[in-house]
């Protein structure tokens, strides 16, 4: 039977987020444009077969993740991509009030580190830490268990921690309640 909602609704609800996800794991805007288009074209071909209770958002992330993995399968291509980002991020450094500048600098460094992570760690990290997907959904996207997905995120955070070594980071805003559960597990 037809999917419960028209496909336009799915595009309207999820396109921007899927694009942003892909933009964060790729190095050039055109890559994210192509991959997000392909994600939705694939989804269109298959969405009629989805059950009424399907988690469409997680399903789209899984398609996008799969496409990214295929896209980056060639190690050579990835290296080129990584070089491109280093140049791009250096260009995007801006100035401003001191704390904001420091935050901007740290953000750029973080972005660069993220894009240099091994692919699975990068995808898991962005899905979890930026888009708030649960580990079950991330595991399904990456063809691994929820526990492995969690381990990928942990490894990613350790690498980010190392790469930010020696950088002073702004601490405002997160100190007041270090043990608050910002997001459910």
């Amino acid at each position: 039977m037809m999917g419960a909602q028209p496909f336009e609704t799915i595009v309207g609800a999820h396109h921007a987020e899927i694009y942003r996800y892909l933009r964060r794991v790729t190095s050039r805007p055109t890559e994210a444009e192509d991959l997000s288009q392909e994600t939705f074209l694939r989804a269109y071909r298959a969405y009629r077969t989805l059950g009424p209770d399907a988690n469409i958002r997680a399903w789209l992330f899984a398609i996008a993740t799969n496409l990214s993995r295929n896209h980056f399968r060639s190690e050579k291509r990835r290296r080129v991509a990584h070089q491109a980002i280093t140049v791009a991020s250096r260009e995007s450094e801006g100035d401003g009030p001191e704390d904001e500048a420091r935050l901007g600098e740290a953000r750029t460094l973080l972005e660069t580190t993220v894009r240099g992570l091994p692919l699975k760690q990068r995808l898991a990290f962005v899905m979890r830490k930026i888009h708030d997907l649960d580990y079950d959904a991330i595991g399904r996207s990456l063809d691994c268990s929820a526990e492995s997905a969690r381990a990928h995120v942990f490894q990613a955070l350790r690498k980010i921690r190392t790469s930010l070594n020696g950088h002073e980071l702004p601490s405002g805003g997160v100190e007041k309640s270090p043990f608050s559960m910002e997001r459910p597990r």
Binding site: V11, P29, G104, R107, L110, I130, L169, P170, V174, P178
Partner: peptide, 25 residues
Amino acid sequence: YREIEGVMGALRRAPSEAESLSRAL
């Protein structure tokens, strides 16, 4: 790690290139 989490908050809020997004759409 708390500080890093703070930077990630900035990353989450970072706007994406609107032009490229609308081109993609």
